[in-house]
Amino acid sequence: MQQTNVAIIGSGNIGTDLMFKIMRYGKALRMAAMVGVDPGSEGLSRASRLGLFATASGLDGLRGWEGYRDIGVVFDATSARAHEHHAAVLKADGKLTIDLTPAAIGPYVIPPVNLDNVILEENVNMVTCGGQATIPMVAAVRRIARVPYAEIVASIASLSAGPGTRANIDEFTETTARAIEKVGGADRGKAIIILNPAEPPLIMRDTVYCLVESNDFEAIRASVHEMAARVQSYVPGYRLKQDIQFEPVANFPGSRAHNLTKVTILLEVEGAGHYLPAYAGNLDIMTSAALATAERLVSKKTLEQVA
């Protein structure tokens, strides 16, 4: 299979884990360059030892490298503010960009929900770790019935939240809430993130609440389990923590129904341990989703070129 050279901007935990995933599982992708701004970065050091191009001069350093012209895909694992600059430059250079920050310049992508709808985009946004874990569940419920309101709570180990995550807390909640509506299909969405300081660190836990205009519990349950299996195909550590809960509730403003049901879905995400510890499922699901997205987009473009 013809492979496309890729570069990662951001040599922190997410970028380094993604590098190992691409090198281990990449089919249409070939890892070529790692970009950072800290010369002492462990991610850059590892990339260099693996024989990849590594630069601590940021995007300018990547663009000055002779191999840049052969880069087809760039993953941005920096910050929302940095991506605003990167996106404009990469677009001008004609690079397909996979955005792992909450900048949301390109359309949101949740692989099992809407990946086929963004095949022709030049910049796609992976939402957030909480979004990747929970929006598939909102979408699964929405396939069965209208969802006037959906709320998600993502609890992650404090040790798995690096400087980028902490700097993007506001963007996390805003971007996830919007994606719950635009991709998940809820009329209104809300997102909450909790940094859990427990020792030893706990793996990622997510709670999804949906108010639905339906009492077809079996159809909802089947839809949720089918969607969970689709996520597990690229994130093996993704699982339902316990049985789905159904509870009758009073009317909700804006709902046409007189009787609503609150659907509660409890999830956990265990990391694969490629580079990050198993408790860092929040980072693992982001890198896994980004890899699955890039593989699909590159494969589709390759087929179109051949045709």
Rank of each mutant, 00 (worst) to 15 (best):
A154N: 14
D93Q: 07
A179L: 02
N5E: 15
R166L: 13
G281S: 08
A257E: 14
I14K: 07
V109Y: 10
N13A: 13
M204K: 02
T16Y: 05
I156A: 09
F246G: 10
L52T: 08
A228G: 13
D93E: 11
I265F: 04
A150Y: 05
C129R: 06
I22R: 06
V298K: 01
A229I: 06
H258T: 12
V208Q: 08
P112D: 13
V306Y: 12
L52C: 03
I194N: 09
E181P: 00
C210S: 14
E270I: 08
A103S: 13
F53V: 15
R230D: 13
L50A: 09
I105W: 08
F172P: 05
R142V: 11
K241N: 10
S255I: 12
D243T: 15
G271A: 03
M1T: 10
A289V: 01
V183K: 09
D76H: 05
A289K: 03
F246K: 08
I144M: 13
A219I: 02
I193G: 04
A229V: 13
Q242S: 15
M137I: 10
A177T: 03
E42K: 14
V6D: 04
G26E: 09
N125F: 08
T101K: 06
T101Q: 10
A167M: 12
R230T: 10
V138P: 07
I135R: 05
A154C: 03
K300F: 08
M137T: 08
A133Y: 03
D216Q: 10
T78L: 00
I244G: 06
G67T: 08
T134D: 12
V118W: 01
L62Y: 09
I193T: 10
A167L: 12
V74W: 00
A32I: 11
I110D: 07
R256F: 14
A133N: 13
V37G: 09
R46M: 14
A140Y: 02
M227V: 08
T78D: 02
G64V: 08
D206A: 14
D206P: 04
S214H: 11
P163N: 10
I71Y: 00
I8W: 04
V37I: 14
K95N: 03
A228K: 06
T16W: 12
I180F: 02
A198C: 07
G58A: 03
K300C: 00
A289C: 02
C129T: 14
M126T: 06
T173F: 00
A289T: 01
L159R: 15
G15D: 09
H85T: 07
K241A: 14
Q305S: 14
I152C: 01
T173M: 11
D170M: 15
I135Y: 03
P107G: 10
T287G: 02
M137L: 08
V141P: 04
R143P: 01
R146L: 12
R188K: 13
I105M: 14
I285E: 03
T175P: 00
D284F: 05
G130Y: 01
K27P: 04
A56V: 07
M31N: 08
G36N: 00
